[in-house]
Computed example of a mutant assay.
Amino acid sequence: MESDEANVKFMRKQKKEIFVFPETYDTSMDERGRLMRRGIMRYANLAFVITLTCISPCVKKRFPTMDHLVEAGILLPNEKKIMEHLKTSHSTYWMPLVWASSIAIRARKEGRIRDDFALNTLVEAIANYRSLCGGLYNYDWISIPLVYTQVVTLVVYTYFLSTLMGRQYLDPVQGYPGYDVDLYIPVFNFLQFFFYMGWLKVAETLVNPFGEDDDDFEVNWIIDRDIQ
């Protein structure tokens, strides 16, 4: 969960850099330059949305197909055809970022980016953003093995079923030394039960931090904010 949260925060920082660099290094303020900057930012948002559709159920419900991305204005119809013609069984989250790099290179050839250092900084930010999208995709693809969750659940429930019988208090009528007080409420057993079961429920929640639970990331809100 901490790795996912750090990854998302760093992605937001890289996306901010992708937006700031064209604004800073683009020496032309005409309509074409503005469209280039908006195109780079749209491709960054598109790559993020495509990545989330692969790992987040709520985003997948919002954008189940590429036609929904076209309706939302994130993807253009001609770009949809290009992505559909790419025959691959893997995710194509990286393709919009390749297009964004092409726009940056075209802007440099037209003299809209003032030097090669600025171009390299912008392309490097796009490349870092692409690797972070791939990191999120890999976190979901190579998740915690199901057998770990099953073993931990079995151990916790078996432990408390055994303690239910193994920690019964002795009958004080029998006169055992040191057992003169009859306790009816196993306070420490209750505390152990609350702690272990609480940790187990937290671990089950952390298996998918991009789900639909209350404690998961508000990915739809992040998408709306980035588009705005």
Results as ranks from 00 to 15, higher is better:
E17N: 12
V59G: 06
V173S: 13
Y159E: 10
E31Y: 10
G111H: 06
V152W: 03
D226Y: 15
V98D: 09
T53D: 00
L132V: 05
M165V: 06
H90V: 04
A127W: 00
R42A: 08
F188V: 09
K80A: 09
Y169G: 15
E79V: 11
I222R: 01
W99D: 11
L119Q: 09
Y129E: 01
W221I: 01
M165C: 12
V147H: 04
R42V: 09
V151S: 13
E71W: 04
A107D: 13
N128G: 15
T153N: 05
D4Q: 00
L170S: 14
F190Q: 07
G73Q: 10
A72C: 05
W221A: 15
R167Q: 00
T153S: 08
R37F: 06
D214V: 06
G33F: 10
P96F: 00
D215Q: 08
N120Q: 04
Y93T: 05
Q228F: 02
R114K: 14
V207C: 01
P209R: 04
G211W: 01
K87F: 08
K201L: 06
S91T: 05
V123G: 13
V123E: 03
L183M: 07
R37M: 02
F194G: 01
F190W: 00
T24K: 04
R37Y: 05
S101T: 08
N138Y: 13
T121L: 00
T65R: 00
I142A: 15
V59E: 08
K109T: 11
Y93A: 07
V202L: 01
S101K: 14
D180Q: 02
Q168R: 13
N128K: 13
I144W: 02
M29G: 15
W99G: 15
N220F: 11
V202T: 12
N220I: 02
L136I: 10
L183N: 14
K109G: 05
K9V: 08
V155S: 07
P209A: 01
F48G: 09
K16G: 14
